[in-house]
């Protein structure tokens, strides 16, 4: 003879197991969805960060390449010659007799105005030669300074170029570091985690356990009365 209470208990146990299984399946599906969502989020953030890093690096590289282009030998040599000419014009006095022979009168000492013609010619030749020699040396001085020392010398120019591009590179580097730090926080994001026990996460599983507990307590009470 079958015990009806036992049959009921068995039925309930089977029902509980089914409920538990169902709850577990639901939880696994939810967890899978959460993982998929997390994966999609991480992939998106990784792509975005890659893009940001690449763009910032390209901007820095553009600044670097711009400086390198300006430092090509032909441009440096042209800059040197330009500065040499500018400086030569700037530092050469205007009253050089070799190119301004009309200024001969200004060069005479007081008392020399009425000198003999031959002496005057000799004077003119000597001062003109002196001006010519000085002009050559001034030109040499301009050349020396155009390499380094004058305001637009090639050394000064190179420094300016490097300084400007380094500022851009540093800015982009800083942007990249900041973005990497933010990405580090994004990488720490974890997927939602579902649990079976504790009645919190699983839902169905927790309810099943409570139900089983209540039925178990009811059966125990009936057995005690019998």
């Amino acid at each position: 003879m079958c015990d009806p209470i036992g049959i009921i208990g068995l039925g309930l146990s089977i029902g509980m197991a089914v409920a538990n299984y169902s709850a577990q399946q639901e939880m696994m599906a939810n967890q899978q969805a959460a993982n998929d969502q997390w994966l999609s989020y991480q992939q998106q953030k990784a792509r975005q960060e890659n893009m940001r890093q690449m763009e910032a690096r390209q901007r820095a590289d553009a600044a670097r390449q711009g400086t390198l282009t300006e430092l090509e030998a032909n441009k440096q040599k042209k800059a040197q010659v330009d500065e040499e000419q500018r400086l030569g014009e700037k530092i050469t006095p205007d009253d050089m007799l070799d190119q301004n022979p009309e200024l001969i009168g200004d060069k005479l000492l007081s008392g020399q105005q009425n000198m003999a013609q031959t002496v005057g010619e000799d004077f003119k030749n000597r001062v003109t030669d002196a001006s010519r020699d000085a002009r050559k040396r001034i030109a040499a001085l301009a050349t020396i300074q155009s390499y380094g020392g004058s305001q637009n010398s090639i050394a000064q120019r190179a420094d300016d170029l490097f300084r400007k591009s380094m500022q851009d590179i540093r800015l982009q580097g800083d942007i990249r570091q900041g973005s990497l730090a933010a990405y580090g926080a994004e990488k720490q994001v974890q997927p939602i985690q579902y649990t079976m026990s504790g009645g919190g996460g699983g839902g169905g599983g927790g309810l099943g356990n409570q139900l089983a507990g209540a039925i178990g307590r009811g059966i125990g009470g009936q057995l005690a009365q019998a």
Binding site: A60, I169, Q172, G173
Partner: peptide
């Protein structure tokens, strides 16, 4: 500058 471009830590 080449290395600083490739590595932001070096840039500063």
């Amino acid at each position: 500058q080449l290395y600083a471009t490739e590595d932001p830590d070096i840039a500063a």
